[in-house]
Amino acid sequence: MADNPVFDRINDYIKTDDVVVFMKGTPTFPQCGFSAAVVQVLEHLQVPFKGYDVLQDEELRQGIKEFSDWPTIPQLYIKGEFVGGCDIVREMFSSGELKQEFENKGVSVSA
């Protein structure tokens, strides 16, 4: 596990920003409906986040799947912790749990 060099990079990413999305495309131009949905939820909650485009980075694209033990993109991290992909983010948003999660972890939510 730890000998994959991309893991160090991922660890840096998820420590540097409170909210990180590994996605296809950028927050401004998502290249996939599932990534777009996660961006939409975060924008609705007005949570600042950092997006990493896996389409521009094959090593990251494969690495993040292994790192999270999760086969699909997008992936949301809050304070270094993996929350889930699009389905989980959407479900947690609808139930109000996502907002709660941000608040519990000390990330300010405006909506």
């Binding site: 999760w70 086969p71 947690m92």
Partner: peptide
Amino acid sequence: SRLDRQRAIHKALKDELA
């Protein structure tokens, strides 16, 4: 948990997902 449920499904459909 939600994560565990999805992970279990991913595991069951491992070949198809790959």
